[in-house]
Computed example of a mutant assay.
Amino acid sequence: MLEDDKWLIESIRLSSGEIGVMPDIKLRKDKPIFAQGEPAEAVFYVQEGRVKVTVVTEQGRAAVVAILDAGEFCGEGCLTGQPSRLTSAVAMSDCVVSRLEKSAMRRLLRDNEQFFEHFLQHLVAGRTRLEAKYVSLLFNSTEERLARVLLNLAGVQNPSSRPWVITGINQETLAEMIGTTRSRVSFFMNKFRRLGFIDYDHNIEVYKTLRSVLLRGDAAWGDDI
């Protein structure tokens, strides 16, 4: 649980006596939260852990829509009248989530101004991430998209020389996140490691020098096809 969000968890728990509120659901890694196509009846709040949101086309192609950390919501499409889930959500690690049925979520949004403001910030942040993802797909190479995703997942913010560690993400998931094949991800992961930008075994260690991939648009980075 994020320290700054304790008040939000308490708001949900105080509502737990109401119909449709389940405040502390524990899920093991790889357990589904909801599945594409099932009725959209509730919003989920991630208290602890990391959640992957995916979509599968009719042709069977899969893509990662979002990776959500503690403090974020998923399944909010039900509030717009969405009858069934357009995506699936699964726990990428051991998780604790809260489940709020549509009516309970609407009550909290109506009666709790702080909760409303937090949820609004989540929606705006999600929209901003989605726009950035579309821009990246349109204008960035596979190499640049991979570097950006690794930096975002690692949360690289300050100039420290220490590595930031990404856990629970494999190359197949990275490929689904940036719209390419696993072999292309493997190619660039090996390249980044040779250049000293990352290191990986079970986890991925990301160094701030990986930012240089995003700062160089010349032919030296022209290995993409």
Rank of each mutant, 00 (worst) to 15 (best):
R106H: 10
V53L: 04
A104N: 09
K102E: 09
A63W: 01
A62G: 06
A66N: 14
E101R: 13
V65N: 03
R50C: 09
G71L: 04
C74T: 13
R106A: 13
L86T: 14
K52V: 12
A104M: 13
E101T: 12
V90W: 08
L100A: 05
E48V: 07
P83F: 02
I67C: 07
R50S: 11
E48R: 10
A91T: 11
L68C: 06
Q59R: 14
R85A: 05
T87V: 15
R85Y: 14
A104F: 11
T80E: 11
A62P: 00
T87Y: 01
R106P: 00
S88I: 02
Q82N: 14
M92I: 07
V97F: 00
E76A: 03
V90T: 15
E58A: 15
K52M: 13
A89T: 07
E58W: 05
S103P: 04
A62D: 11
F73M: 05
E76M: 07
S98K: 03
K52P: 00
C95Y: 11
C95R: 07
S88T: 11
S93W: 06
A89I: 04
F73L: 08
P83G: 02
A66Y: 01
C74A: 11
A91L: 05
T57N: 11
V97N: 00
E58P: 00
G71H: 08
R106V: 14
V90P: 00
G60E: 07
S93I: 10
V96H: 07
L100K: 00
A104S: 15
V51W: 06
A66Q: 08
T87A: 09
C74L: 15
G71W: 00
I67M: 13
G49Y: 05
V56I: 15
T87M: 03
E72H: 06
C78Y: 06
S88R: 00
G71P: 07
K102Y: 06
K102R: 12
P83Q: 03
I67S: 09
V51Y: 03
K102S: 10
K102L: 01
T57M: 03
T80F: 08
R99G: 03
V56C: 11
L86S: 14
M92F: 05
A91G: 08
E76F: 04
K52G: 04
M92C: 06
C78A: 10
R85N: 12
Q59K: 15
S103G: 11
A70N: 08
F73Q: 04
A104R: 05
V65Y: 01
T87R: 03
R50M: 15
F73S: 01
E101S: 07
S84L: 14
A63I: 11
Q59Y: 09
D94S: 08
S98L: 11
C74M: 13
P83M: 06
D69P: 03
S98A: 15
S84D: 15
V90F: 15
S98I: 11
L100G: 05
D69A: 09
S93P: 02
L100D: 04
V97W: 05
S88Y: 05
